[in-house]
Amino acid sequence: MEDIIISTLQRAMVAGTPLLLATTGEIICERSGILNLGVEGVMAIGAVIAFIVTMITGHPWLGVVAAMAAGMAISVIHAFASITLKANQVVSGLALTMLGLGLSGLIGKPYVGKPLLIKMEDLNLPWLSDIPWLGKILFSQGPFFYLAIALALASWFFLEKTRLGIQVRSTGENPKATETQGINVTMVRYLSVIIGGGFSALAGAHLSISYSKSWIEGMTAGRGWIAIALTIFALWNPGRAIWAAFLFGGIFVVQYLLQPLGISPNFLAMLPYIATLFILLLISFKDPKKLNAPAMLGEPYNRGER
């Protein structure tokens, strides 16, 4: 029994890792006022590029870097449409998702079902991994796990404790006031969207080269959408995103615990999505003012308008 619980929690951490990466990216993006619904598509692009590059070169980290570069590049489309052209951000984001899913399917066609033989070794942190229970769960994980947590903490520090962070948050709250203070709102927003895209692609890379070590079309399986929901659930705070993401990671793997009890596996597979609906429902009961959503989230900024 003990083993089952430890291994379930261990897997929950692994399943939560891509959610955390994508959520952190979306938080940075949304704090600057841009809603990016393209996470799912960018994740798929990241997954396929990481897989192909790793397979060809044999270096997983090269794959990761290539995936992030691709994710950032494709996010520029959304940035251009929503910031420069001031288009509807929902439409542009949805388009990015469709583009990403379609493009990844096309590029990845020859690689479907091929196993990845290169492995990313788990890192057993000295001493810490010897702690009973916690050591196995938290301190002998793959490198993506540590990376995700480090990036989430760094993002929190960036947003709350640096000058540029204040500029990003101010841009999302009141771009006009921010601009009168001499800050380039357009640049801040571009930067945020592109960084967010890099995070999403990183999440995708984790899926294909570390989590399942294979590529199949549609393998992101709605995780991008869950990340968008988690952004709200975490109240746009990367620190809170850490436990929110791993909670959802737990929901992803709890099905393996419950299957022996005779519950239909099809129902169990729905759990993460039901839970997403549930938290969105829960959060909608909260006073919108206390949610602290960026005030100008989703609103294009027109300089000339008063």
Partner: peptide
């Protein structure tokens, strides 16, 4: 009209 960010 003040150029301030209300939530900050």
């Amino acid at each position: 009209h003040f150029m301030l960010i209300k939530n900050h």
